[in-house]
């Protein structure tokens, strides 16, 4: 996972932002780096409307928006922290709105975003303490530092 997360794919939002706004902004980071085409971002927004990706896991909730593998040039992840929270719908109960503070936009080329990377992401979000540490980052650089610290820790223990 470490390799897929780069500083230019991180976003820290201190101001409120709506769901589509967050998805577009995270998507723009991946388009800028050549990871995906704009069509992928549009697909993610459309998919979110149909099959929401909000995960209600505790005090800090997470969303894992993603779409089909077309228009993905290479695998990548964009991670955004929205401090005031943004409304997503729950994956398990699509009519239910939940407040999400961590949004992980996934772009997978089927063969590349391997099971272990996905599992690492799922593992990562299960620790509320870790999510809290991410939320305390003041800006993207600090977020990156905190993320790599935690991931390195995870790798040493794992």
């Amino acid at each position: 996972m470490h390799g897929l997360l780069t500083p230019e794919h991180l976003l820290v939002l201190n101001q409120p932002c709506d769901r589509i706004g967050v998805l577009q902004r995270l998507g723009a980071l991946l388009v800028k780096s050549g990871t995906v085409e704009q069509a992928y971002v549009d697909a993610v927004v459309a998919r979110e409307g149909e099959y929401p990706t909000g995960l209600e896991i505790g005090e800090i909730n997470v969303a894992i928006p993603h779409a089909n593998t077309t228009s993905v040039c290479r695998s990548g992840i964009a991670l955004g922290i929205v401090k005031p929270g943004v409304k997503f719908c729950s994956m398990a109960e699509p009519d239910k709105e939940i407040l999400v503070q961590v949004v992980i936009l996934l772009a997978a080329q089927k063969s590349e975003l391997q099971l272990h990377v996905l599992e690492q992401i799922m593992e990562f979000i299960q620790d509320q303490g870790r999510l809290q540490t991410m939320l305390e980052a003041a800006d993207e650089q600090e977020l990156y530092t905190r993320l790599t610290q935690h991931l390195a820790l995870g790798e040493r223990q794992g």
Binding site: R47, E50, Y51, T53, I64, H66, A67, N68, T69, M91, L106, A108, K110, L113, L115, L118, E119, M122
Partner: peptide, 12 residues
């Protein structure tokens, strides 16, 4: 939804 991401984790 897409048959790529979350279903892969669950399969594993």
């Amino acid at each position: 939804g897409t048959g790529v991401c979350t279903s892969t984790v669950v399969m594993g």
